[in-house]
């Protein structure tokens, strides 16, 4: 189960000495985000189970006068939970992590800006720069794209390859994937904008995934290519017929125009096809 459908009973959690309301079992990082309390994070994605991979969202939990570190994305709200987000211990831990990330993904602007925000502008570690890296030396191997591809989309086109310092994410054999829908979920969840995708003519090209090409559907009205053909076909299979026919032909913009036009016509006593 990805998220609790029924919210737990209301509880009070203490973050940096201030009390906040939360639901029991809620992810602490979500509470912090909602309350605009700054906790850096890379691998947290609300639509996926928390994973605790990036270690950036570390906080200190105060329990019976003792403190221990925990990732706030895997920490669940409970009554009386008390955490601190900016202790010297956390700051030290974060700085080292940022240095490691600067070495792991030296070309990532996101990492650079985030690190600079926390006062880390250089790294003592050897920067990992590879010529022709399909992910542009921006990948931090958080695994969000791999999980979105298989757990959310059910495509499983990409995965981790190799291990240890040689680990990368890509398609099997670095060959264009037959399992890829071209949905772009990987692009959207990537916290460091490492994955490149581009629509070229009638195809969507997943540049980072070995130039996997996915054909797009064309709008009958304006001629624009707007959605991966196979993906729209599988979505359409689940819709009602009148809606299906329209969506199958038109891009969202043209469909919007047509809807508005029909509404105006209906207002003037014209014909309307939408209820």
């Amino acid at each position: 189960m990805i998220q609790q459908k029924i919210p737990g009973k209301p509880v009070t959690v203490t973050i940096n000495g201030k009390k906040y309301r939360a639901n029991e079992g809620e992810i602490l990082l979500s509470v912090a985000i909602r309350e605009k309390i700054e906790i850096p994070h890379l691998c947290f994605e609300a639509s996926l189970d928390p994973y605790g991979a990036c270690r950036l969202c570390m906080v200190e939990v105060v329990r019976k006068g003792k403190r221990e570190m925990a990732t706030s994305c895997t920490l669940r709200a409970a009554d009386g939970l008390e955490v601190l987000t900016d202790t010297p211990e956390i700051e030290k831990h974060r700085s080292i992590l940022f240095e490691l990330y600067l070495a792991e993904a030296p070309k990532s602007d996101v990492i650079r800006d985030m690190a600079a925000h926390y006062g880390v502008t250089r790294t003592r570690f050897l920067k990992r720069i590879e010529q022709g890296d399909p992910l542009g030396n921006k990948c931090v191997l958080c695994g969000l794209c791999v999980r979105a591809c298989s757990e959310i989309m059910g495509a499983g086109a990409i995965n981790f390859i190799n291990r240890g310092p040689y680990t990368v994410v890509n398609t099997p054999y670095y060959a264009p994937s037959r399992d890829c829908f071209g949905c772009g979920a990987c692009v959207r969840v990537c916290p460091t904008n490492a994955i490149e995708m581009e629509d070229v003519g009638a195809d969507r090209v997943m540049k980072s995934w070995s130039d996997t090409r996915v054909p797009l559907s064309q709008c009958e009205c304006c001629g624009r290519y707007y959605a991966p053909r196979e993906l729209s076909a599988s979505v359409l299979a689940r819709l009602d017929t009148p809606l299906k026919e329209e969506i199958a032909r038109l891009c969202p913009e043209c469909r919007g125009k047509q809807l508005a036009q029909n509404e105006i016509l209906a207002g003037r006593g014209g014909r309307a096809t939408h209820g």
């Binding site: 499983g156 990409i158 995965n159 190799n162 291990r163 398609t171 099997p172 054999y173 399992d179």
Partner: peptide, 21 residues
């Protein structure tokens, strides 16, 4: 590996991940 992926209904990416790990 490709044949195995078809026969078991397991994504090639998963098998490739294992074989390279």
């Amino acid at each position: 590996l490709e044949l195995l992926s078809e026969k078991l209904g397991v994504r090639l990416s998963q098998l490739y991940g294992l074989a390279t790990f």
